[in-house]
């Protein structure tokens, strides 16, 4: 029994050294991806506080199952998978107290001042007005830098569908910009 105990103690030392490697890996993961993951969460939730809560929960879950991440290159899509699951959980929990608040009001969480910022604010509003099914593929492409194939895998969609949605999303944004500059021109003339 005491030999068992000593053996266990040795194992504990080995576990400890692999634990610190795990810690280094985890901290590198946090440093490399927390910004992208936060931005992704922000665009999903439109609320900096909820975004931060989900990001915290995502990284905590990532820590607990870090051993399942074999390929470091897959880290970002792995984190986004966890994040999307966390966000879905939030909806399951809050199924009955969701309100239909206009998203363009929610988009105003960040304070913007200069003229360029006004343009950014306007574009941000247009992004929020996109149909739901176009928003996330665009988010994955712009923030996470995912390819069409990766987005298709994440969203469980056919690649052609993803490419069509990306095309339509940008097309709608471009149209909105043109319509705005047209109306600006006509009001000036």
């Amino acid at each position: 029994m005491f030999i068992d105990f000593l053996r266990k103690k040795n194992n504990a030392h080995r576990v400890k050294s692999s634990m610190s490697k795990k810690q280094v890996k985890y901290e590198a993961l946090v440093q490399s991806f927390h910004k992208d993951i936060y931005r992704y969460a922000y665009w999903l939730t439109h609320d900096p506080h909820i975004a931060e809560d989900i990001v915290q929960e995502t990284f905590l879950r990532a820590w607990r199952s870090l051993d399942s991440l074999q390929d470091d290159k897959a880290a970002k899509s792995w984190l986004i998978t966890i994040l999307r699951r966390e966000n879905a959980r939030r909806f399951e929990r809050k199924q009955f107290d969701m309100s239909d608040v206009e998203t363009d009001i929610l988009a105003d969480c960040q304070t913007l001042t200069s003229e360029q910022d006004t343009e950014q604010y306007w574009l941000r509003k247009q992004i929020n007005l996109l149909p739901e099914e176009y928003k996330e593929p665009l988010l994955m492409q712009v923030i996470a830098g995912f390819s069409g194939d990766e987005i298709a895998e994440q969203l469980n969609l056919n690649k052609n569908t993803v490419m069509t949605r990306l095309f339509r999303a940008r097309n709608m944004l471009k149209d909105a910009i043109e319509a705005q500059s047209d109306s600006a021109r006509s009001s000036n003339g």
């Binding site: 927390h34 936060y38 665009w43």
Partner: peptide, 8 residues
């Protein structure tokens, strides 16, 4: 740029 919201 529009997508790059501030991170705490």
């Amino acid at each position: 740029q529009v997508y790059q919201v501030d991170v705490p």
